[in-house]
Amino acid sequence: MFFSVVIPTYNRKPILEKCLRALEQQQIDASLVTGYEIVLVDDGSTDGTLEWLKQHSEFPHVRSHLQNHQGAAAARNLGVEQAKGDTIIFIDSDLVVTENFLQAHAEALVQGQQQLGSDRIFTYGAVINTCNFEDPTSEPYKITDFSAAYFATGNVAIARKWLEKSGLFDTRFKQYGWEDLELGVRLKQLGLKLIKCPQAVGYHWHPPFALEQIPKLIDQEIQRGKMGVLFYQKHPTWDVRMMIQMTWLHRILWGVLSIGGQLNERTLAPLLQWLINQGKPKLALEIARIFLNWYNVQGVYAAYAEAQQKT
């Protein structure tokens, strides 16, 4: 099989360098993986990403493409369209992989096909979250790294033909969230099975939590609520309602935990800053999720009400 690693990126040049260098260090068995390419799609970055790439010749596997800022869904579609491989791997540009990453996906795909007697499969690797920019792959696995997602593009390998048969990503998902899980619903309808591949490890880097990030995080939750409603409009099922938190259960849960929104970015700021000063930014972020989820639920219901008015 020949891999095309499709990576959308937007203003992530520092961590993208680590991402690309790790992919250039892959150890593969030529009898199983005939080769690979890295298809980088710049979604209109303003940080000089492509200019930097042109100045560096140590990325022989990379082919880059540029589009106006349209979102990750459109960027991944362009990557698939330009890919030469029969098998597509999706990762994000802030993911740093180990040297056996591609080989692990290849072995899992072959074993899964043999065990199930079908090629209607895809592999899902492990994603470990880390704030360690200098040495991201040193982060141990944590219980908070567990994901029950069926199809998430942070670390997944799938035959190109199934992506094309499904119709690729819906480019109406221009804002944050859900474009990959929505595609996953369509892949499931085609009968594809998920094969877990914990040996294909990717380390998802993000900066340590700080109070300055809160406005952006709140905006992302509101965007995720809007895109969640689009997800539900396409697939009006209880499973999707649960995923996007558009149920009375979630409304009550986060309403109670946030005391009706009284525990918010303003009232919790002193506690969050104290935890950050104590060297516990991860704990501070988990506490911040109380009001972030409340914003998400509020955003879902506001977007749904607006959509109902238009119909």
Rank of each mutant, 00 (worst) to 15 (best):
M1H: 12
I7S: 03
Y10A: 04
K18R: 11
A22M: 04
E24V: 01
I28P: 02
A30M: 09
I38G: 00
T49S: 06
L50S: 07
W52H: 03
S57Q: 14
S64D: 09
A72S: 14
A74N: 07
A75H: 05
V80P: 04
V80I: 14
I88M: 03
I91Q: 06
A104H: 06
H105A: 00
G112D: 02
I121S: 04
F122E: 07
E139V: 08
A149K: 13
Y150T: 01
F151T: 03
F151E: 01
G154M: 11
V156Y: 05
I158E: 01
A159W: 13
R160M: 08
L163Q: 08
S166C: 11
Y176K: 04
G177P: 00
W178R: 07
R186N: 10
L190E: 10
I195H: 01
K196M: 12
H204L: 08
H204K: 08
H206T: 12
P208F: 08
Q213L: 12
K216P: 04
R224M: 11
R224F: 09
M227Q: 14
Y232N: 11
Y232G: 08
M242H: 15
T247Y: 07
W248T: 13
R251S: 13
R251A: 12
I252G: 07
L263I: 11
T267E: 00
A269W: 10
L272C: 07
Q273N: 13
K280P: 04
K280T: 01
L283P: 08
L285Y: 15
I287N: 07
I287L: 13
V297G: 00
G299Y: 02
E306A: 15
Q308G: 14
T311L: 14
